[in-house]
Amino acid sequence: MKQIYLIRHAQSAANAGKTSDTVTHTNAKIPITELGQQQAEQLSIWLRQNIENVHEIFVSPYLRTQQTAAPYVQAIHMQPTILPNLHEFNYLSFANIQGKTFQDVKTQSEHYWALNDVDFRDGDDCDSFASFFQQISDVRRYFSAKDDGVYVVFGHGFWIGVLLWQLIGRYADSLNMTKFREFELLVRPKNTDVYLWQMDNQIESIAKVRNANDDV
């Protein structure tokens, strides 16, 4: 059996931003906040207390997952592997949002979802919903081919939402963006929530095993 501990990164500057703040970082370069650093430290303690015999640790190419993982990997002296397909959904082009307020970006985001076009890309630096959906499927195949054991994965909230959507098995609605968006807003994990994603032969399951609010 493969046991994959899947974690949403700690609070980022984008998560903490006010509606009047402006976009200054590309999606890949958004850092965690001071609170996010505290969350990462608490997460490191929880992981060391609850998980043993870790085979491998993975992070996305994005800065916020690597910063979240840093206290843990330093404490246990393991080097994380960057897995490109763990990156977060990048559906608004930086060229179209740079310097705009978070409120403006929210409006553009709502427009994107209203288009309901699974193949639409806002720019060359963006994913389409269909390509992002395939990205999560590719990671599932990647871990399916790994040896049995324990893995720790630092990822992103929207990414986890798509995985949950795939695992509930509603394939007839899988690329229905309107239904998915309703689902994702309901299940979106909090910063440093932890899920246990298990693979036993062809059977997959997932459950939340740490609620970040437990540290409060």
Rank of each mutant, 00 (worst) to 15 (best):
S174G: 06
Q37T: 10
E56G: 02
Q38L: 15
Q103V: 00
K208D: 01
N116L: 01
I45V: 14
H111G: 12
V194F: 00
V216E: 13
K146T: 08
V209N: 06
S109K: 14
L47I: 09
L175F: 03
G99M: 06
V105R: 10
D117C: 06
M78Y: 04
Q67P: 06
V118A: 11
A16M: 07
R188A: 06
K100C: 03
V139R: 08
K18H: 12
H77P: 00
L43H: 07
P80R: 02
A69S: 14
L186F: 09
D148L: 04
F129E: 09
G169D: 02
G161V: 04
A70R: 14
A172E: 14
G161Y: 01
W159Y: 11
D104K: 02
R188V: 05
A40W: 05
Y112S: 13
P189W: 00
Q49N: 15
S205V: 02
S131C: 07
F143S: 11
R64K: 13
H25Y: 14
S20D: 14
E41W: 06
G161K: 07
V59Q: 05
E184Q: 15
H87Q: 10
S44T: 12
I32C: 09
T19S: 15
N27F: 10
V153N: 10
G161Q: 10
G161A: 08
D148N: 14
L35N: 14
S12C: 11
Y195K: 07
P71G: 09
D125L: 06
F129C: 12
R188H: 12
D147K: 12
V216H: 12
T81I: 10
K29G: 12
P189M: 03
F158A: 05
Y171V: 08
I76D: 08
R8F: 03
V54W: 00
W113F: 13
N85M: 05
M199F: 09
R140I: 13
G123P: 04
Q66I: 11
Q67T: 07
I206M: 10
L115G: 09
P80F: 00
K106W: 01
H25S: 10
N85A: 08
F102A: 03
N27R: 15
S93M: 03
S205K: 11
Q79G: 00
K29S: 15
R48M: 15
K179F: 04
V73N: 03
H156G: 05
E88H: 02
G36D: 07
A70W: 02
V153C: 11
N27H: 14
D127Q: 07
L185Y: 10
Q11F: 01
G155C: 06
S131P: 03
P84Y: 04
A145P: 00
E88S: 04
D21E: 07
K190G: 06
I7W: 03
V209T: 07
K106Y: 04
P84V: 11
D122I: 02
G99A: 09
D173F: 03
G155Q: 01
V152L: 00
D124G: 08
L185V: 10
K190F: 00
N211L: 00
I160N: 04
R8W: 01
K146N: 06
F120W: 10
Q42I: 08
F133V: 10
Q198L: 01
P31G: 12
Q42C: 11
L167V: 05
V54R: 02
